[in-house]
């Protein structure tokens, strides 16, 4: 199992990294953004396995993006590794602070409370005109351990970076999902009381899932900010969080790669509907989302299971 996982991770990494050569510029950027958002969604999927959905993952997406931007602008740090690490650290600490609080809530209460936290950040940032208020701020292009590429090499480097992080994060999350605690998360979804009677702490499990989601959100936000070159409080707005939830639902909780594939599909559909139906792109996007939910109520991940079932 473990060796299979590592082989598939390496194959996925190579296949995706090949995109740095074969993909046209615009698609490489679109994939990089989609994978960065996919990281955030992976955190939501981790929570979804336990039966709760965070409607406020924008909190960590935005926190990561702003941490990177403020550090880059105020301390002149442009190294992508260091910025990612610092953002992840900040999100880890904030996640540890809020995790135990949120882990007591389920269903709509968890969703609303997490949403409220992200909207508090949105409101606060909007008021802070010294860091740009609602207009946000710009962040310069990152460097890679002292290497400062420009043009296509920069985009390719960013793309390879996000691909590598996505594959590593995906692999680690898969290992976690298959671990004792990960499987208990799945059991919590079915019957929380029984898990407690087995002697496991549901609260503890939920806290772990939430903190992992926070760190992934921060990393995703940092990469998105560096790729875009601009951050604004919109990163923490509920529509941004809602988009992450949608990707998570589209992917379902069964498969890790499905999360990234869903994120890419959503970006592609949005980009092309925006171009071909400028007046009705929201409608086109909505119809697509509705069709997917009707056709695949358990998400794209269920396709993998279905395919596996047929073979077996």
């Amino acid at each position: 199992m473990q060796s299979n996982l590592i082989i598939s991770a390496i194959v996925a990494l190579v296949a995706l990294a090949a995109g740095a050569v074969i993909l046209p510029d615009w698609a490489m950027f679109l994939f990089a953004m989609a994978l960065a958002k996919g990281l955030v969604c992976l955190g939501i999927v981790g929570m979804m396995r336990g039966g709760v959905v965070s409607f406020g993952q924008g909190l960590y997406y935005c926190l990561g993006a702003y941490t990177a931007t403020l550090v880059a602008n105020n301390f002149g740090i442009s190294d992508i590794f260091l910025l990612t690490f610092l953002s992840a650290l900040v999100c880890l600490l904030v996640g540890i602070a809020f995790g135990p609080l949120l882990s007591n809530y389920r269903g709509i209460f968890f969703a609303m409370l997490s949403l409220a936290l992200s909207m508090v950040l949105y409101g606060s940032l909007s008021k802070m005109s010294f860091i740009g208020g609602t207009d946000g701020l710009n962040i310069a292009a990152p460097t890679f351990l002292g290497w400062a590429p420009e043009g296509r090499p920069l985009q390719a480097a960013l793309y390879i970076y996000v691909v590598t992080i996505s594959v590593i994060a995906g692999t680690l999350m898969r290992i976690y999902f298959d671990s004792e605690r990960g499987l208990l998360t799945l059991a919590t979804r079915d019957n929380e009381l029984r898990v407690e009677y087995l002697g496991a702490s549901v609260r503890n499990i939920m806290t772990y899932n939430y903190v992992f989601g926070a760190v992934l959100g921060g990393i995703g936000g940092t990469i998105a900010a560096l790729a875009l070159g601009h951050v604004d409080p919109e990163f923490a707005f509920w529509t941004t969080s809602g988009e992450f939830v949608f990707v998570a639902i589209l992917a379902g909780y069964l498969s890790v790669p499905a999360v990234f594939v869903s994120a890419i599909i959503l970006e592609l559909v949005r980009s092309f509907s925006n171009l071909y139906f400028p007046n009705t792109w929201q409608l086109a996007l909505g119809i697509f989302l509705l069709a997917v939910i009707i056709a695949l109520p358990n998400g794209l991940g269920s396709l993998v299971r279905r395919w596996k079932g047929n073979k077996a």
């Binding site: 996925a12 296949a15 993909l23 990234f260 592609l268 993998v304």
Partner: peptide, 23 residues
């Protein structure tokens, strides 16, 4: 390994779609 193939297949299909729609 079967799942792996399908996962990679999915990714490649998406990529082909993206490249095909470029030009």
């Amino acid at each position: 390994m079967k799942t792996t193939n399908s996962k990679i297949g999915g990714l490649l299909a998406t990529m082909t779609l993206a490249v095909g729609l470029s030009g």
